[in-house]
Design a protein around this nucleic acid. Sequence first.
DNA 1: TTGTATGCGTTATCAT
DNA 2: ATGATAACGCATACAA
Lengths: 322, 322
Amino acid sequence: MSKFDEIMKRSGYSRATVSRVINRSPHVSDEARRIITEIMNELDYIPNRNAVSLSTGQTKQIGIVTAMIDELSLTFINQFMDTAMDYGFQTIVYMSRSDKQIELQAFEDLRSKRVDGLLIVTCVNDPGELKTYLQYGPMVSWQRMGNDEIPSIAMDQAQGYRLALEHLVSKGYTRIANVFGRSNSLNTKSRREAYETFMTSQGLPVWREAYQYSVFTSSDGETALRRMANGGELPQAVLCSNDYAAIGIMSEARRHNIHVPDQLAIVGFDDIELSRVLELTTIHNPIAEQAKQAFYHLWRVLGNEEHKATSLAYRLIERATT
Amino acid sequence: MSKFDEIMKRSGYSRATVSRVINRSPHVSDEARRIITEIMNELDYIPNRNAVSLSTGQTKQIGIVTAMIDELSLTFINQFMDTAMDYGFQTIVYMSRSDKQIELQAFEDLRSKRVDGLLIVTCVNDPGELKTYLQYGPMVSWQRMGNDEIPSIAMDQAQGYRLALEHLVSKGYTRIANVFGRSNSLNTKSRREAYETFMTSQGLPVWREAYQYSVFTSSDGETALRRMANGGELPQAVLCSNDYAAIGIMSEARRHNIHVPDQLAIVGFDDIELSRVLELTTIHNPIAEQAKQAFYHLWRVLGNEEHKATSLAYRLIERATT
DNA sequence: TTGTATGCGTTATCAT
DNA sequence: ATGATAACGCATACAA
């Protein structure tokens, strides 16, 4: 006999009434509530979540799909977890390690009702295939999806990039090098276009020869600076894929006795904690706000209150490197 | 009507037979299997995992409890995931961010049958309290538990530490500095004792003044070396809390023009990927094997085949820093 | 090989 | 406020 039945028996109340006190329904006499609660405690009772989920059709659980957890995604994930928890949702992480099969498990879990919804931080499967899972439950993505069918709360980085460009030019830096991440990513494409369009519009030269790709870490940044230093004329300023890269460039510049910002101005991207400490000029990426929006999106689709999607924007944070 | 019922109706077979082909029972006619499988595909059927779990009492899911995911724990977690998958188990990560309440959710999920077992990579709650959850399902811990009741597959680091000490002394280094992690952790205690016992047994002086604590990252390592350099007499060798710290010490030594290993020998701990590249002498920590053992332990308690627990050992990896 | 009946632990819809 | 009963979707012991 299950504990639930035991409670029924001992208390003398019916299945329904016991369920009511478990779920804090107001329609129970104080007497019943008292007696049943007491027995629940005696028995150390806790509902079987599989049974609850089967009955309600909801798991109150949201899956987080990500290949890996790094400092940036962690900021996002943490904020998402907090928000979800505020609304009574648990979150579980599906770390795929870029394995398509493992990643797919998360989506199959949506299909088999193990989670109510999915947050995609990073995914390796083809969005075109993943979108078929939309019929089983809501999903949002942080990563930009080429596909428009899977909703994404990603922002267009071009806006942030323009901010940096305007800042640099207004300060008199015109010979600007660009250090990108993945060469074929949507974000890189956006940034590159933003740069080329902006420079052209200002009547300034577009410096394609100075493009560098696959610069992600601070150690990549160090390498990047060395290439610049060895590559003839030094740029007046460099726009970085992210703050880590910028930090690498900054520290390597110091070793090369290149003065920042006089000889080389540096602008990062994302505005991570460290960049404040190191006084790096950067573009503030409202990650926490995006995480909230991501949850609100799921929340909305899961059939609850509306939530206005406040529009987010990048912000330039001027510090000591420009 | 559920898809399951739909399959019954369309195929004309009974509930039991349908269930049999779903679960690949051999006791079905080819005919029945063919027909039912076909209908399953037509209907795009997939079992509701809540129903399955409720019925079987098993979720085939193991929870991984960890405060944070860093490179070291990642090695462990990845291997555990692979092993678990080989045995048909899914894994989900409960990242507590050192929040006791959040961490407790994982344990409550064991209680409420959301997971079949728990792997504790790191935990912040008191082991004395956590052990009460053992009645709800199996748990293993990687982290050492002061408490003996929660099984742990952690190894005694003293063995590895002695290896390093023997190596150093045999090479003629006797003025040895120790760089530890958390000052009050069980591991630090083990190591410190191993050092003091060993030195005493060799008739060598114990150098307590050179103890440094809270050295975790490579940047901590850099600081540690600076302290040594400014602290009067340099040690002949330094034993590090982990490879990151060792790498920090190594690179900072280079900047101070301290030659390794002639002026300073360095021994790391764990044998991470990077240490091979950087030719760091270190103690190999059989993390992957520990992860397997962790799973086997759960597997055994979950009532399946026995698995001999092969005993693991640390190994000295001599490279260029000694 | 197949079918019947029952159980898993809970919620929800009606009544009363 | 309380209770009887069905429903959730599936597995399984037992019969046939």
